[in-house]
Simulated scan of single mutants.
Amino acid sequence: MSSPLTVTDPAAVRLLMRGRTRQILGAFLAGEGSVSAAARRTGVDIRVVHREVLALFRAGILQLVREDKRSGRAIKIYASAASAFFVPFSTADAATLDELSGGYAGHYAELFRQASAREFDRLHREQAAGREWGVRLYLAPEGHWQTDSSYEGAELIDAAVRYQGPVGLMLDADASFTLTEEEARAVQRELILMLMRLRPLSLEHRQAGTGKPYLLRLGLVPVTVEEGKYLHELAGQH
């Protein structure tokens, strides 16, 4: 694969900061084609695709390779100017790396929140059997007080020890841990290996039209001592 084309022109950089534009450019990274073909590949309205293609062409990101003659107006065939592109962070008018990457982290977080709330509500309706779900404040067996959510009458045990809520194919957990750097690296390796194992499986299902989509969010990052104390406060531990 050839090296990515570095993009520094302000107009081109602004285009590549937009998620919809990237989606349409992606259709041409897969091969040359017309505006209508790109619209079919992406599922985006053809008028929107036409507008974005013209902008990408003017910015030099797409190239006009030929015009296929037919009765009436000829069909213009475009191709990507390179097989890959690179936008240096220093040239982008973006305040954060998340903005440079298209704001994916924020979009994923919001989608995860919505999907988790929807799935929990469904499971709760199916399994509650008249029980109320609510917030608890109690003294944990380890000696600290904590607050969490559970069914009324459930045993006063942290969900990380024994989960007593609705059961289904969902997991929504924010947790902080105190680890050595070696232990943290081991956790990191385990998470990376899991992602590497899931990727080819996911691609196989997409190509076969099997399975269903799931959103998986993983993260591991060191925090300061002060931030760690704040996380424990959020978790209701003292």
Score class of each variant (00 low, 15 high):
residue 1 M to G: 12
residue 1 M to R: 11
residue 1 M to L: 07
residue 2 S to V: 13
residue 3 S to A: 05
residue 4 P to Y: 03
residue 4 P to C: 02
residue 6 T to N: 01
residue 6 T to E: 14
residue 8 T to G: 00
residue 9 D to N: 14
residue 10 P to F: 00
residue 11 A to K: 11
residue 12 A to G: 08
residue 16 L to T: 07
residue 18 R to M: 09
residue 20 R to M: 07
residue 22 R to Q: 13
residue 23 Q to P: 01
residue 25 L to S: 10
residue 25 L to C: 05
residue 29 L to Y: 05
residue 30 A to F: 03
residue 35 V to A: 10
residue 35 V to L: 04
residue 36 S to A: 10
residue 38 A to L: 01
residue 39 A to V: 05
residue 40 R to D: 12
residue 42 T to L: 00
residue 43 G to V: 04
residue 43 G to C: 05
residue 45 D to R: 09
residue 46 I to N: 11
residue 46 I to D: 10
residue 46 I to A: 12
residue 49 V to W: 04
residue 49 V to E: 13
residue 54 L to M: 14
residue 59 A to E: 13
residue 59 A to R: 14
residue 60 G to K: 14
residue 60 G to V: 14
residue 69 K to N: 13
residue 70 R to F: 02
residue 73 R to C: 08
residue 77 I to K: 05
residue 77 I to P: 11
residue 78 Y to W: 05
residue 80 S to T: 15
residue 81 A to I: 14
residue 82 A to F: 08
residue 82 A to W: 14
residue 83 S to D: 15
residue 86 F to M: 14
residue 87 V to H: 08
residue 91 T to L: 03
residue 94 A to Y: 09
residue 96 T to Q: 13
residue 97 L to A: 11
residue 97 L to E: 13
residue 99 E to N: 02
residue 102 G to R: 12
residue 104 Y to F: 03
residue 108 Y to C: 03
residue 109 A to C: 06
residue 109 A to I: 01
residue 110 E to C: 02
residue 110 E to L: 08
residue 115 A to W: 06
residue 115 A to R: 15
residue 116 S to R: 10
residue 116 S to E: 10
residue 117 A to T: 10
residue 117 A to H: 11
residue 125 R to P: 05
residue 126 E to R: 13
residue 132 E to W: 00
residue 139 L to K: 09
residue 141 P to F: 00
residue 142 E to T: 02
residue 144 H to W: 08
residue 145 W to Q: 00
residue 146 Q to I: 06
residue 146 Q to T: 12
residue 147 T to S: 11
residue 148 D to P: 06
residue 149 S to R: 08
residue 149 S to N: 06
residue 151 Y to G: 04
residue 152 E to S: 07
residue 153 G to A: 07
residue 154 A to K: 06
residue 154 A to D: 13
residue 156 L to Y: 10
residue 158 D to P: 04
residue 160 A to I: 12
residue 161 V to I: 12
residue 164 Q to F: 01
residue 164 Q to N: 10
residue 167 V to I: 01
residue 175 A to P: 03
residue 177 F to N: 05
residue 178 T to E: 09
residue 180 T to C: 10
residue 180 T to D: 04
residue 181 E to P: 14
residue 186 A to R: 12
residue 190 E to R: 08
residue 190 E to P: 02
residue 191 L to R: 10
residue 192 I to F: 11
residue 192 I to L: 10
residue 192 I to T: 09
residue 194 M to P: 02
residue 196 M to K: 14
residue 197 R to M: 02
residue 197 R to F: 06
residue 197 R to N: 07
residue 198 L to F: 04
residue 200 P to W: 03
residue 200 P to V: 01
residue 202 S to R: 05
residue 203 L to I: 00
residue 204 E to V: 04
residue 205 H to C: 11
residue 210 T to N: 01
residue 210 T to A: 00
residue 212 K to H: 00
residue 212 K to A: 02
residue 213 P to D: 04
residue 214 Y to C: 00
residue 214 Y to M: 11
residue 216 L to M: 12
residue 220 L to P: 08
residue 221 V to P: 04
residue 223 V to P: 06
residue 227 E to W: 03
residue 228 G to D: 07
residue 228 G to M: 10
residue 230 Y to M: 11
residue 231 L to T: 00
residue 232 H to V: 04
residue 234 L to W: 05
residue 234 L to Q: 15
residue 234 L to T: 12
residue 237 Q to M: 09
